[in-house]
Structures are given as C-alpha cells and as structure tokens.
Design a protein around this nucleic acid. Structure first.
Lengths: 190, 190, 190, 190
DNA sequence: AATGAATGAGCGTTCATTCAT
DNA sequence: TATGAATGAACGCTCATTCAT
C-alpha cells in the first residue's frame, strides 16, 4: 500500500559517513546526500528533522558497531593480546578520530539531537570504562608504566591514528612503526 | 590625518586564530571575526581582499614566530637537549598541527594568496629540514631507533600535540607524560 | 505532487527582457526580477544557476523566435518584398540590437553559459548568412549600390532600429521614414 | 597657505570620460577614478557630493565643448558645407551617443544633479534648434526630402555613429559609406 | 512516502558615502 | 585640502528548512 522506500537507513548512514569524511561537517549538505541516494532533498526530512539530528544519529549507529566489536576484547585472555586487539581496532577504524572531533562541534538545540548526544556520551563513557580497566590491568600486571595518567594514555592512543600515511611507506610498515612507538617510544634502550 | 583604528592587526590575528581553532576553516566567517572586533564586516576588507588572504596572512605571521623560536635550537649542544627543546616548542604551539592541516585546504586563486602560500611552504620546508637533521643526528649517535622511518617519527611527534588536555590533569603533568611516551613508550621495560 | 509554481518561465523571460532594456546588464539584478515575479530572490536559482545563465537562456529563447520568423523570408519571391519583410522584422524587434550588444559582454565561465553562447553564436551566424545572401541578391539584381560593403549595410540596418521614437510621430510614420532613409537617404534626388 | 590641489578638474573630467567609455555607467567607480588621479577616494567628495553629480557635471562640461564647436557651423555659407561639417562633427564625437544614453539613466535625486540635468537639457535643446534650422534650410532649398519629419532625420543621423566599425574596412571607407547611406540610401537609383 | 516549489538567513564581496583627524 | 577608517546597503549565491500536493 504505502510506497516502498527508495533508500534504506543503512545506505543513508553509509553515504553520510563517506560525505562527512570527504567534506567535513560544514561541507556535508543534504543536497549532496540526497544526490547520492537518488532522492529529493526534502525526502530526508521525513526521517531526520535537521542536519544535526541526522549526523548525530549516524554517529550513534557507528558508535554502536565499534562498541560491539570492542566487547570482543574479552575473548582474549592475556593483557598483551588484548592490547594488540585494541590497537588493531583503532587503526582499523581510523576515521573514528575525525568523527569524534566532528561530533564535538555540534550544538544541541533540538531535543532529539540532545538525546542522540546523550547516547553518544554514554557509549563514550562505557568505552572509556572498558579501556580504563584494560590499562588498569596492564599497570597491575607491571606491564605498563604506572605513573602515566590513564587519560593521557588513552588520548594518546586514539590520537595516533591521525599520524599521516606518507607515500613511500607501506601501510603495514606504518602501522607497525606506530605500534612500536606507542609501546616503547622512539628512543633506543640500552 | 585619518581617524584612529578601532582594532590592531595583532588583535585581528589573535581573534582569527581563536576562531579558526573553534570553528575550523569553513566555520570561520568575516561576520564572526568582525563581531569580535566590534567593527562592520566590510571594514576587514580594507586590509585583506578576501578570506583566503586573511587566513594565509595570519598563518605566515604565526609561522614566522614559530620558526624564529625553532632556530634557537642550535644554542643547545647535546642531542638530548635539542630534542627536549623541540618537544617543548611543539607542545607550546599546540595549535600548529591544526593550523597546518587547515592551510592545506586553501586553494590559491589570488596572487597575494599565492605569495602567502609560497612563503608558508618555504617555512615548512626549512622546518622539516631542521627536524630531519635533528633526527638524523639522534640516529647517528645511537640514541634513536634507526629502523623507524623519519617521516613517521616526525608525523608522530607533531600528532602528539593533539592529544586532548583532560581537566584534572595539570598541563605540566600532561606535557611530561606525552614526552615520556614519545621517548620511551607506554610499556614498562624490565 | 509538489506545490504549484508561482511563476512561469514565460513570465520570467518577459520580465527579464523588460529589466534588461530598462537597466542594462549590470543594472539587472535577481532582486529586481524576483520583486517583479513576487517571489524570493533565491527561488530563481532553482531554475538558473547564475545570472549569466539566466540571461543567456533568455536570449536563446528570444533569438529562436526571431530566427523562426526570419526564415519566412523565403516565402516572398522578389528582392523588394524580401527586403521590406526584413526591415519590418527588424523594426518590430527593435530591442534586438540592444540585446545583441548586451550579449557580447557576457563571459562564459560555466558550462551551461558556454552552451547558451554557442547556440546564440550559431543563430547569429545563420542569420547573417541569410542577410548576406539577401544583400548579395540585391546587388546582383542591380538594386543595391554595389560599392557599399555588406558589413556596413548590415550594421547600418540593425543600427537604425535604435533611432528613438519621438512622441508626436506615429509609429508607422516613424517606420516609414526610417525605411525610406535607409533605402534612398535623406537627400532629394533630382 | 591652503594645500595645493593634487589634481585639476580637467584631469578629472578627462579620466571620467575614459572610464565611462571603458566601463559604462555601472562599471565607473570612485575607486577607479581616484586611482587614476592618484588621490584617495574620499578626496573627490570634496568637489562632488555623489557619483551622479560628478557624472552629470562632466557631461555638462563635455556638452559645452561640443556645442561651442557646433556654433562654428555658421562660418560655412552653403547648406552642403554645413551638412558635411555636421556629419564630420558627429562622426568625430562618436562617444556622444554613448554618453547621451548613459545620461538618460541618471535619476535626479539631489538638487545639484537636478541643476546639471537642467543645464544638459538646455544644451540639448539649443543644439536641436541649431540642427532643426539646418534641416529646415535644407528642405527649403529643395535639397532634403521635405516629407521626412525633422526629428527622425536628426535621430537617424545621431544614431548612425553607432554603426560598428568592422575590422577589414578602413575608417575612412566606413565614414564615407555611412555618409553616403545617410544622404542617398542603400538603393541604386536609375 | 516522496516530491518540487519556495523561503529566509547567512556568506563573501563591492562600493558609495560619512567621519574624524 | 586631503586622508584613511569605518559603515551599511546591496549583490550573487548557497543551503537548511518548510509547504502543498
């Protein structure tokens, strides 16, 4: 009876992600998105009342997925394996960092946006808890430097994904180098 | 002879910097800037023909200062001191990184913009030369890991400044932590 | 499916014409046009991406009509009839001249503008061909002065439409006078 | 005592003329003019309260000169010589036409503008009187077609200067052709 | 559910005009 | 007399958002 939808939410989120990464927050427009989905600009307003709501909704969606993957960390028994899993995850989701910084700029005017931001914050919090406890474990087992503040370690790790990939250096070489620096620094030990 | 200026170039650059950091390139508007300076939008066009010229002019100004400080590195004799000086400098100018990435996006249509970008590129080049030779020295003296690509090390160091400052951790504690991680990593040695 | 349009393209072209004649190219603004159509300025951008595109589109439209009429010239057998038909046509479309001179000033930045200008040029060319061959015929039949350059004759005829209509002289009297001057000059023959 | 003027009115009028011809009424700006005179924009406001006043003042000045030349027509005894003198004058001052059409668009808001336009109209009138009487004489002497309305003849002659100069035709050839058409038309007599 | 039409706020920019020195 | 600083209105243009179908 009702007309069939011309686009799925998944499609919409996927294109939203791409556009955000390509054009940033300001460069993202409904016109662009609608163009990619093959619908009229106004059609999107049936699902999201405004740009901010759409973007935060997308972020919640993305965050959910990341978070789900993150919980698989418990499948690994040793600290070392868990830490490596975490680094892999972060290096794989290397847009995460960009996304987070975009998220910060969104001001919460409408109630739905507020709700989305609340959920985002919640995810953030739960994620940080996970990570905190991992770091805590590393310190307890004497494997991580105990005097470094947890927040700095975490921020630091997340930040690392933004180190630019230079041409001439392979992706794996890059990833391995980053991993080593995070763990043991740039200085030679003797 | 003419009436007194309502704002100085220094003021203008200062506000430009703040706005760029808060809102990014696209979010930066003459309206915002004029508002902060307490003048009409159009007044700014007396000094800069367009947005790109203003922003690149600001960047040249900023870059000049950084570069001048950087050359003082030669006052320090040992590698360790020089390396510490460099880290201090970068942590102090912690917006540098953001600024550089903004600078990349500006297309050079007008001649003055072109000139500004040329000067910026020059600074960049000279700066990278300085840093490369520092790292080279570190490797030669057996103090830095020789197998890490120079580009990754440099990118990494610059990236580090973007690690967020959490409230609850003092700035010096943050800086010290970052320094240690860069040099020796997060892991305990035994 | 969507709401009804508040203005038709024909209306838009009509007002465009009027405004161009009244204010010239620079004096023509979207604000003025929108005002006459009773819509917001921005509404017009749904149909034409910029001022140049709108104006060239209008001109193509106008030119098409003129050209269609012009081809009816072949329905007349004798040179005299054809010449008279031509003069009538030109005197009737007395803004043509103004329009052509406006058209020359438009620089072609956007592709659609380029396309429009190409079509305009095409019309021009075909029109001039028609007229040239008419004049050629007049000369061959010994009815036009053979030593006058074709370009001057054509330019002259087109120019004549710009002779102002003084109040106090009827349109037909004006047209008849112009026709006579073009054909036989202002001087008495004896 | 008083500072010496950095520019003369003559200079100003000369540059005004050039700029008007190059850029038209809208394209003419105080900035451009000031640039050519080597003074600040605002300096010009000491002499002319606004753009319209300046332009009309220039036009009065120009008109004065043309009119002065025109009165020399009485030095010639015969109608033919006078007519040729008139045509020469008009072909020489071929910008006159452009200027007049520019003048029409100026609306008289300020009193000084009004006054200038009044003087312009006066010149116009006196000029037309001169020309009318010339044409009258031509008709009386049986040299001009008596049935053509004077206004049309005059408008026609003035209009002729706007016939474009095509490259490939020398200026004198062009002028001669125009003259012939005005006098005897494009058609062959037999 | 989806569309195309229309709006209005805001941006970058230009320029006539005013003001204080 | 001349200046440079500043203003404000307008323009071309974009885009989030609303409306009627």
């Amino acid at each position: 009876m009702a007309r069939e939808r011309k686009f799925s939410l998944d499609e919409l989120f996927e294109q939203t992600k791409q556009l955000l990464l390509e054009h940033g927050y300001d460069g993202f427009t409904f016109g662009l998105l609608a163009g990619r989905l093959g619908v009229a600009r106004s059609a999107i307003y049936k699902y999201f009342e405004n740009k901010e709501e759409l973007i935060t909704a997308y972020m919640v969606n993305e965050m959910e997925q990341v978070f789900n993957k993150l919980t698989r960390i418990h499948a690994y028994p040793t600290f070392e394996e868990q830490f490596r899993f975490l680094l892999d995850l972060i290096l794989y989701y290397d847009d995460l960092h960009e996304m987070i910084s975009i998220g910060k700029r969104i001001s919460e005017t409408h109630p739905k946006v507020k709700e989305n931001k609340r959920r985002l914050a919640q995810f953030h919090e739960r994620m940080y808890e996970e990570l905190h406890s991992l770091i805590q474990r590393g310190k307890k087992e004497g494997k991580m430097k105990p005097h470094l503040p947890n927040e700095v370690i975490l921020g630091y790790i997340f930040q690392s994904v933004a180190v630019p990939h230079f041409p001439g250096i392979s992706l794996t070489e890059w990833a391995e180098s980053i991993r080593e620096i995070i763990m043991y620094g740039v200085m030679n030990q003797n």
